[in-house]
Computed example of a mutant assay.
Amino acid sequence: METYSTLVWVILGMAVVTYVPRMIPMVYLSDREIPSWLNEWLGYIPVTVLAALLFPILFMENGSLSILQNPYLLAALPTFIVGFWTKNIFITVLVGMASVVAIRFFI
């Protein structure tokens, strides 16, 4: 019973931590006009976060810079090309997964 209670509290805590940062700006900014420069600046945040998440896995392996022998970087190249060319997230994800599998099989 102790484990169940702890699990419920952890889930509720995670829900609050996830919900509150989204709710506060929505409540605070819902009746205000956001300047166009701020709206444009906020549009760069997802790209920046994605780059910060991808950089270590694409360019580092075991804590050191690895460009030619890193399978994730090698798989990212055809994935990027297909994503840029097709603009289809489903096909891009499939190419990315297939690239990782193929590179791990051959290397």
Rank of each mutant, 00 (worst) to 15 (best):
M1T: 05
E2G: 02
T3K: 11
T3C: 06
T3R: 09
Y4K: 11
S5L: 15
L7A: 15
V8T: 13
V8Q: 12
I11M: 10
L12D: 07
M14Y: 13
V17C: 14
V17I: 13
V20L: 09
R22C: 10
I24K: 14
I24W: 09
S30T: 13
D31F: 05
D31I: 02
R32Q: 06
R32H: 07
P35N: 01
P35H: 01
P35I: 00
W37S: 03
L38F: 03
L38W: 03
N39D: 02
E40L: 01
W41C: 08
W41S: 15
L42F: 03
L42V: 01
Y44H: 13
L50G: 07
A52I: 09
F55N: 04
I57L: 08
S64D: 06
S64V: 03
L65I: 03
S66G: 11
L68G: 12
Q69W: 05
N70Q: 05
P71W: 01
Y72G: 08
L74S: 06
L77P: 15
F80L: 13
I81Q: 01
G83V: 04
K87M: 04
N88H: 05
N88C: 02
N88A: 02
F90I: 05
V93R: 09
L94E: 08
V95N: 08
G96V: 07
G96F: 08
M97C: 10
M97G: 08
A98K: 00
A98D: 02
A98F: 02
V100R: 05
V101Y: 11
V101F: 12
A102F: 13
I103L: 09
I107D: 11
I107Q: 13
